[in-house]
Amino acid sequence: MRTICLRSMEQKQGGTIKTVKANGELGRRIRDMGLVPGTRIKVQGRAPLYDPVALRVGDFTLTLRNNEADYIDVDVE
């Protein structure tokens, strides 16, 4: 298992969130949606211009810009 930044995850790759370094409004929004350490996520796809990224979190799909994904580190399998 290794830890990488969410931005560099590949299509369909799954993993478990390790840390969320964002604070302020972005941090709140991210955590409000359940992106906290321990949450399992999977990269569902990317928009045509490669940004934002769509994630499967639990039973729903969430989108996030790449520069926001930079704050999240993931343990990938």
Binding site: E25, L26, I30, T61, L62, L64, R65
Partner: peptide, 9 residues
């Protein structure tokens, strides 16, 4: 603003 947005089914 963050683009933390749900894609509803």
């Amino acid at each position: 603003t963050p683009f933390v947005m749900e894609l509803p089914p």
